[in-house]
Amino acid sequence: MTTGAWLKVLSASPEYFYLAFLGQALVGMAQIFILGVPARLAAVWFGPRQVSTACALGVFGNQVGVALGFLIPPAVVGNHEDVKDIGHDLKILYYGMAVAPSIMLCLVLFFFQKEPPLPPSPAQASLRQQLPITDKSTDRQTYLQTLKSLLTNRNFVLLLFSYGINVGVFYVVSTLLNQTVLLYFANAEEDAGRIGLTIVLAGMVGSVTGGIILDKTHRFKECTLVVYFMALAGMLAFTFTLTLGHIWVIYITAGFLGFFMTGYLGIGYEFAAELTYPIPEGTSSGLLNASSEVFGVIFTLAGGEILGAHGDIATNGTLTALLLAGLAMTLLIEGKALKRQAAITLRHSHTHLEQEEMLTTQT
């Protein structure tokens, strides 16, 4: 990501468009890996009553970056008549975008620890106990074997598709938001940008709220179903309030949609970690991100074509039908197939038995 950001610094000139494209591609590829970090870090560093909130805060950080993306570039880069002035503003923007990840890279290189000295949860303790007795030459799964294990896990595959559909629909809504709003409100470009910001900010709150609720209840499937259903309701509300002619109503329905649709991100990561334990959380969340990117590209291209040919009602109706299909897939996931919670329960049982044996021996 840092390399791509510095390439963009060098590309702030019309003749270096290819360099800007290369830098953007590197940043985009890095995003797949970075988006999977919160679930892994949360599992390694936080206990069972903190892990979902920690993951949600990681997703929250990502959404803060998206929100800043709505605010900072328009404030820094002006719409000048002279291309050189635009290039000057872009150079300032790109320097800021390169210095920040460079600082983070140095902090990670010099201060980042792989794991805490003591495991923060019974699930992590079980994993550490298994590592010393593992024969590295024969028993350690390769990455391809891990992928095979994930892709043959029926519950995870259902989540993989339902997650990709949800986030893919969110990408379409965000990408086509400006065009959709302008169909009903002339000269509302600034309002469209603020509505997009509202979606992101509401999603940040939704993400943290979902993490806290998961830590309190550990009801992963139930929370996922509720959030998915409310995202579906938000999509319907957003679709049919556009025709009312009141821009303030769109702010409300878009915020409602963003709260649940973006709030689903962290919940999806944690649900995947529960379904696929002891496979590393970074692998499962990486697949979820890849699924969302694939569905996002397909849905965005299709959504643009439908919007141009048949209008926004047909487009949003299609997106609503896709969310309904994703909700149906979520219903098919077995709610009792929570392997990480089972490991925690088993670990507690073993600890309790060991304590009883020690008391009996002392007696």
Rank of each mutant, 00 (worst) to 15 (best):
L7N: 08
L7A: 07
K8A: 05
K8S: 13
K8T: 12
V9M: 09
V9R: 10
V9H: 09
S11E: 12
A12S: 14
A12H: 05
A12P: 06
P14N: 10
E15M: 09
E15L: 09
Y16G: 08
F17D: 06
L19P: 08
L19M: 15
L19C: 10
L19A: 12
A20Q: 13
F21T: 12
F21M: 15
F21A: 14
L22A: 15
G23H: 08
A25I: 09
L26Y: 04
L26M: 13
L26I: 14
V27Q: 11
G28T: 09
G28F: 03
G28Y: 03
A30T: 12
A30Y: 01
I32V: 14
F33H: 01
F33I: 06
F33R: 00
F33G: 09
L35N: 09
L35C: 01
G36H: 03
G36Y: 04
V37D: 00
V37Q: 11
P38M: 04
A39W: 03
A39L: 04
A39K: 04
R40T: 06
R40L: 04
R40A: 13
R40H: 07
L41H: 01
L41K: 00
L41S: 03
A43L: 06
A43R: 13
V44E: 13
V44R: 09
V44M: 10
V44G: 01
V44F: 01
W45I: 08
W45K: 05
W45E: 02
G47H: 08
G47D: 11
P48G: 05
P48N: 11
R49P: 00
R49T: 13
Q50K: 14
S52G: 01
T53V: 06
A54N: 09
C55T: 15
C55D: 14
C55E: 08
A56C: 11
A56P: 06
A56T: 11
L57I: 15
L57D: 04
G58H: 02
V59S: 10
V59Q: 05
V59W: 01
V59T: 13
V59A: 14
F60Q: 05
F60R: 06
F60N: 10
G61F: 06
G61V: 07
N62V: 11
Q63L: 14
Q63D: 04
V64Q: 02
V66W: 01
V66E: 05
V66I: 15
V66Q: 10
A67L: 15
F70W: 12
I72Y: 00
I72G: 06
P74W: 08
P74F: 09
A75R: 05
V76Q: 03
V76M: 03
V76G: 06
V77P: 05
V77N: 07
G78L: 08
G78V: 01
N79E: 11
N79K: 12
H80S: 08
E81I: 06
E81D: 12
D82F: 06
V83H: 01
V83A: 14
V83M: 13
V83T: 12
K84L: 13
K84A: 15
K84W: 11
D85Q: 14
D85S: 12
D85G: 05
I86A: 15
I86S: 14
I86F: 01
